[in-house]
Amino acid sequence: MSSLTSSLPRADGAGARAARWGLYLILLLFAVWYLLPLVVMVSTSFKSLDEIRTGSLLSLPRDISTDAWSYAWTNACIGADCRGMAPYFLNSVIIVVPAVIISTLFGALNGYALTKWRFRGANLVFAMILFGSFLPSQVILLPMAQTLGFLGLAGTAGGLILVHVVYGLAFTTLFFRNYYVSIPDDLVKAATIDGAGFFQIFTKIMLPLSLPIMVVTIIWQFTQIWNDFLFGASFAAGGAQPVTVALNNLVNTTTGVKQYNVDMAAAMIAGLPTLVVYALAGKYFIRGLTAGSVKG
């Protein structure tokens, strides 16, 4: 990707130089604005309560203390449960891993079937699945709660996995479908003549070609499911709640002294996994975002 204007000559002279300085200044100011909440969060989480009270919002911690982090991880009270964020973090992991794997797998299969083995009505099926990605979750909260109760999954991790798989299908199918559309049909024809069947073509040819979109999809699903709050708050009870719900409960606990440093450490704990993934594979995350925007 080269800059749109890279083919034009650079302007010279004092005016142009001043303009460039202004340009960088604006961009840096925006960077500061975007970074501010993160900086506040990180620095506060390393401060002691005393320092928070005496210091200012933006001051960096004088002596870095990890007490808030370890307290948030093991001792903080979420409601009446004072085991810290750790068990909830684990809950999220237990929910996220299978949900991501299952929804990605189904997305890949759907994308493959809908592009390479088109049946009558395939477009309609895809459009109907796609609509799910825009569905306001509020419409399905109540029936879902009832259904989970009926299935005996109410309040469990299994229930949340089901929910995330179902409502992730729209995105994963979209990603894979749009990717597979660009893989030539001739490959499938050639493989058919070579004697490969439906699943052999999938496993031996399509999947090995799918690595980039696989990464995009996994990262997207991971981020979505890890960051989910509404489903977690609606369908998970007590000890099975995911980390975002726990964080919200922790922050909104009104009893006792407000420990802002613990709040911030807990927020960082809840946010770190997706932040790390973003730092490591931001490129794929962005690709997911733009693909998820139904831009094809």
Partner: peptide
Amino acid sequence: IYLYPMALSFIVTGTA
């Protein structure tokens, strides 16, 4: 830097 908030949950950034 401009894009990282998108990777975070509103619950996390809301806290900040």
